[in-house]
């Protein structure tokens, strides 16, 4: 019955039988997931379960040995990272990866590159097109930063931001590429409870403002149970359980995987 309803629903990301091995180790083994448009989906599991590897497969950092990734009805398996971003997947990283020597504003402007293009000669001769595009870029970047309350820090170096704001900037930069799907890799890592709460608000906010689908890796169970609608639990590269958040988190198998016997 539930299978019947699923096929009628609007599936944004469908992953089928995805596998990859490093040497003899099956890092991800037969991974399947269907994420509906607008959904907030969680991917959890103990350390070394293969969560980040799934993200790296989805964004083309690794090429899968087998399996298919279909985004919005279009197969994107085996494409390059840059192409996959153009197709509509953006991500953040477990260990923050900002352009540390660029300003906060330039971090976002770099992500807008695909949408506000001008040529090399425009840049060298500062043509009217260059000025117009740069002006639009500034306005767009500032409006994105203002959603994250970062516009006052726009001209600081990214490395000068405090930790929590660096996380926010990374999300802002990913969203600037106007993705259909955003992958958040442990956004609450290293945050205190107050910052984690702020982050939950931020995630709720970006769903509203950018109408984006979210796939999230997280260790913080409070965050996961607070915001995720459905979950997949990975263990040793394989799917342990999937389904509604509450049901999955109360599953004895899942509790065992996290806490041990």
């Amino acid at each position: 019955m539930s299978d019947m309803t699923n096929t009628n629903e609007d599936i944004l990301l469908a992953v089928e039988n995805l596998s990859i091995s490093f040497g003899g180790l099956k890092a991800v083994d037969n991974f399947n997931v269907k994420i509906k448009r607008g959904e907030l989906y969680g991917l959890i599991g103990p350390n070394g379960a293969g969560k980040t590897t799934v993200f790296n497969l989805l964004t083309g950092v690794y090429k899968p040995d087998t399996g298919a990734i279909i985004l919005d009805g279009k197969p994107i398996t085996g494409k390059k990272t840059t192409e996959i971003n153009h197709e509509g997947i953006a991500r953040t990283f477990q260990n923050i990866r900002l352009f540390t020597n660029l300003s906060v504003l330039d971090n976002v402007k770099t992500a807008l590159d695909e949408r506000y293009r001008y040529g090399l000669l425009d840049s060298i001769f500062r043509t009217p097109k260059f000025r117009r595009m740069e002006k639009e870029l500034d306005e767009r970047a500032l409006s994105i930063l203002s959603v994250f309350e970062l516009e006052d820090e726009a001209e600081l170096k990214a490395s000068q931001l405090p930790y929590g704001k660096q996380r926010k900037l990374e999300i802002a930069r990913a969203l600037a590429t106007e993705p259909k799907l955003i992958l958040l890799d442990e956004p609450a890592a290293g945050m205190n409870p107050q910052e984690t709460k702020e982050l939950m608000d931020t995630i709720a906010l970006i769903r509203r403002e950018f109408s984006v689908t979210i796939l999230l890796i997280e260790h913080d169970m409070k965050l996961v149970s607070g915001i995720c609608e459905r979950l997949t639990v990975l263990n040793f590269g394989q799917i342990l359980r999937e389904g509604e958040t509450r049901a999955v988190l109360n599953d004895p198998e899942v509790i065992k995987a996290y806490l041990g016997d």
Partner: peptide
């Protein structure tokens, strides 16, 4: 002028973090 344009930004972005640059579509 090259440095202070979208080309310069992209070149410096790749310098600062190649993986992040590719994740936002910068070749």
């Amino acid at each position: 002028n090259l440095i202070n344009s979208r080309y310069g930004r992209a070149i410096m972005a790749v310098r600062d973090n190649r993986i992040a640059a590719e994740s936002i579509g910068i070749s």
